[in-house]
Design a protein around this nucleic acid. Sequence first.
DNA 1: CATGAATGAGGCTTCATTCAT
DNA 2: CATGAATGAAGCCTCATTCAT
Lengths: 191, 191, 191, 191
Amino acid sequence: MAKVIDKRSAILNTALDLLVENGFHNTPMSLIAKEAGVSAGIIYHYFESKEELILELYREVKQKIISLVLEADFQNLNGLGVLKQVWLNTYHYYASHPKETLFLEQFENSPYIKMCLNEFNTQLQPLFVWTEAEKRAGNIIDLPIEVLYELSIGVAVSLAKQQSAGIIHINDEILDQVSAAIFRSIQPART
Amino acid sequence: MAKVIDKRSAILNTALDLLVENGFHNTPMSLIAKEAGVSAGIIYHYFESKEELILELYREVKQKIISLVLEADFQNLNGLGVLKQVWLNTYHYYASHPKETLFLEQFENSPYIKMCLNEFNTQLQPLFVWTEAEKRAGNIIDLPIEVLYELSIGVAVSLAKQQSAGIIHINDEILDQVSAAIFRSIQPART
Amino acid sequence: MAKVIDKRSAILNTALDLLVENGFHNTPMSLIAKEAGVSAGIIYHYFESKEELILELYREVKQKIISLVLEADFQNLNGLGVLKQVWLNTYHYYASHPKETLFLEQFENSPYIKMCLNEFNTQLQPLFVWTEAEKRAGNIIDLPIEVLYELSIGVAVSLAKQQSAGIIHINDEILDQVSAAIFRSIQPART
Amino acid sequence: MAKVIDKRSAILNTALDLLVENGFHNTPMSLIAKEAGVSAGIIYHYFESKEELILELYREVKQKIISLVLEADFQNLNGLGVLKQVWLNTYHYYASHPKETLFLEQFENSPYIKMCLNEFNTQLQPLFVWTEAEKRAGNIIDLPIEVLYELSIGVAVSLAKQQSAGIIHINDEILDQVSAAIFRSIQPART
DNA sequence: CATGAATGAGGCTTCATTCAT
DNA sequence: CATGAATGAAGCCTCATTCAT
């Protein structure tokens, strides 16, 4: 049983490395098998097809990210506090997981994405709910949730990508400033 | 001569459609040829290989975007005005060119991108220069140019993508609000 | 394991037939596969490419010839005896292996040959050594080894080619006479 | 008219260079055209097909060689003298025309040769006739003409090939010795 | 469960030849 | 006569997937 999990994981981990390195279509199943130290045939015990393997990898990576990102104290933090926590979680996860980041980007910008659009929406509901509440309370400007998402979390992801790609170097001081800027943008302007 | 240009363009246009629709590796050259109404062989008169065709398409699309986006009155607008103009140009271009947008995303998140990294940096220099000037003048907060880019232009691109994908609907009013929010974020907080 | 060898051999044998019959470039891999009773793809398990297949075939054929040709009793024959034995071996091998002969000719007169020039020189060393010894002993005229080679072995090959091509018919009597003529030429003239 | 000849010759000369350099099947017609400074289409005014071009090149090269090689004073030289002259002519032509030599080898060892087998036999008749006469006169050993050919002319060709390939260096002294050896072999042994 | 040889459809690319200009 | 863009058949090779062992 442990072995099964190990082998399945070995395949997924190797796939992540290779898919990021070579792209989806320059990564033959046989190479994944070889690098994972398993036979080509056994992959088909764990995954129906290459497509299913990639989808599964996406689901696992995405699931893990969402779990970690949403690890905020929804009870004791007010909505803005929650959002700040989520924002930081997001940045830190992406910045410290370059392979996962690249994989997600590649996947979500490929035709594959059509197959699991909105699959994770429900898990993001709590965040959306809190955000709507804050909007009603006048703590956040009144824009569609998706727009607010891009203004805040979306920027965290973009910055983390650049950081982990080595294009920019973001230290804690800059992060504080950026975070402040973000929240300045989504809060109502002071009169 | 005109014919040559026509055929070359027909190939590029068809390629854009199909690559966006099916992805780079599910778009056979033979299909591009067929849809473009030319023979399979002729593509290789105009492009050395499939890879070169895609790279060329990227260069043309990217070049056009940069030209249009930078169409601002650098003489008569102050730096922030320039940035606002560029911001709007960016949003409008991406929002009204969904195929180009999807293609760029796909390309820039694929291993292909390594082949023309920084190829267009020089053209963006004017914008960077103006931004630096505004930073020194205290009109924009002091953050690395790449960070400021993500906070402003990056968001325009993200929103335009969502808009053209039909995920959200952004009307002029929302656009104004977003624009204001963006510029609130990158300007120094009022004391 | 036996099967692997069988299939690899089947491919090589079929390739020999077809390459000789049609020439290197009029022998598609697909035809080799078909005639060998295997799928097109499997050839690439055993050989990296068509070129590698041909090179490998050359190596195997050449290796076999050299082994058989050098099968002489280097211990109990004097140098001239050795050379006579080698001369006969050469003639008989080529005369009785028309396909191998044609293949070698085709290969060694094609640009491919550049890839394995001198690859078999070391194995011919013993013969060269004996010949040099005979030269010093005054039993063979003092000419460069390569020249002596053409005067003797080279002629055996040429004759065998003509014989196996059906252009001439060489019986044992003629062979004796030719052999004598050859050795008359490379021995010092009687004074 | 002169131009026509020029263009045809330009094509043949270029073809010779390229065919020798790259082999028959790695020499596209378009490359021949380009290197010859003509258009791809015009080749088909002078030659029906690629095959016909190669055959024609073969015929011209072969014809020239035969003419030059047979340039001996058949009237005033006895048979052996004729043969010696022909032998030297052969050696010198091949040794000083490496491209033609390589082309002939390549051609004559390819399936193409089937198309013009024996095409030049009639021109060699005089030589054969003289040789037969010498045989009857007891000046040359009684072996089939083709065998005698290989023992003498064939060796000249082989040596010239090696010489022009740079594998061996044959100076005049060596040439004399070889020539003597050759004729020692085809003359009856002195009793 | 595990292996990896085997399959064969399909992709990219080349190039002899044609033909409108 | 001359051009060279255009055609399209055919070749080499890859690789997702299967299956006998």
